[in-house]
């Protein structure tokens, strides 16, 4: 390269540090939640407002990085004057709203949702669910008690779908939260390999025409696994370790590093058990990834493991 002025001397620091253009301060909306006054920016949801007050609202199908579909209805709260309970994850705040996050009606509704899910879906690998069940006094067994036999209580139990080497789909654990569909679709990956098919209780997550994954549009980014709240979608190493009874998250070292592949610089959260990488995720609050990775970042670590065991 020539010794032009620009390359020969470093340019001086800018007088004004480059930054995004200033945006007008958002209009603040006042409302009352559980008797406490709060102001949040217009457009915020009730759950956002609850967070500013450190009020915990349970969620299943909600994730900051995804468009709320309010499918699970665990997050419902009571809005004064409204006929129905409002899903806190998607309901935008309005000035003067008076919201109760706990009330007999709210608690009954949450309890019911947990019982309905608990009685129809295998929630054994859903983190946090048992605590929620306990808090709301949910007894999923009560339907069986009335109906007599387990077989008379419909469930989504079904064989695990294993059709590729990277991840398994155990739809017996699916609560149909739509997160995987959103992550595969417009909210992140835009691959559209999966969608909800069927109606009523037969509604399920499906590839196009229910073909196996290798015949579908799937690109194996695993962003669906990352958002799955129940372990219905699981990377193969975790699935196999769980099958063998050797999945021990308490012994795992979890470290953030940067993906070894392309130059985008995605943060990988690496889960290591017994000197083996067993899972890779990415933080949802990371500005580069927003929790998303590609197939190489999420699954392409085997070259390190191979030598660990070789």
């Amino acid at each position: 390269m020539s010794h032009d002025e620009i390359s020969f001397h470093l340019p001086p620091p800018a007088a004004l540090i480059p930054a995004p253009p200033a945006v007008a301060a958002p209009v603040m909306v006042p409302l009352t939640i559980d008797g406490r006054a709060v102001e949040v920016p217009a457009g915020a949801t009730l759950i956002d407002a609850c967070k500013t007050l450190d009020i915990d609202v349970p969620t299943l199908c909600y994730l900051e990085t995804l468009t709320p579909v309010n499918a699970c209805r665990v997050c419902v709260v009571e809005v004064e004057g409204a006929r129905v309970l409002a899903p806190a994850c998607s309901r935008a705040v309005e000035a003067g709203m008076v919201v109760k996050t706990r009330s007999p009606r709210v608690d009954l509704s949450r309890k019911l949702v947990l019982e309905l899910l608990g009685s129809s879906v295998d929630l054994s690998t859903a983190p946090g669910l048992s605590g929620m069940m306990h808090e709301y006094g949910a007894r999923p067994d009560r339907f069986q008690e009335v109906l007599g036999s387990p077989s008379s209580v419909s469930s989504v139990a079904q064989p695990v779908k294993i059709d590729n080497h990277l991840y398994v789909r155990d739809y017996g654990k699916c609560v149909l939260c739509y997160k995987c569909v959103e992550a595969c679709g417009t909210d992140a990956q835009n691959t559209f390999a999966i969608a909800v098919a069927g109606r009523g209780f037969a509604a399920h997550i499906s590839t196009e025409l229910d073909v196996p994954l290798p015949d579908s549009a799937c690109v194996y980014c695993g962003n669906c696994i990352a958002v799955c709240p129940t372990g219905a979608l699981m990377a193969t190493p975790e699935f196999e370790l769980r099958q063998a009874g050797q999945w021990r998250p308490e012994t795992q070292a979890v470290t953030d590093t940067i993906c070894p592949y392309c130059g985008v610089g995605c943060t990988l959260t690496v889960h290591v058990q017994d000197q083996q990488i067993v899972k890779v995720t990415s933080p949802f609050d990371n500005a580069v990834t927003r929790g998303n990775l590609c197939v190489k970042g999420r699954f392409g670590f085997e070259y390190v493991n191979r030598t660990q065991s070789d």
Partner: peptide, 15 residues
């Protein structure tokens, strides 16, 4: 005929 979207309806109608 539930669309299957929300839990109270999808599973509740079954129960």
């Amino acid at each position: 005929e539930s669309c299957g979207q929300c839990v109270p309806c999808r599973v509740g109608t079954v129960r």
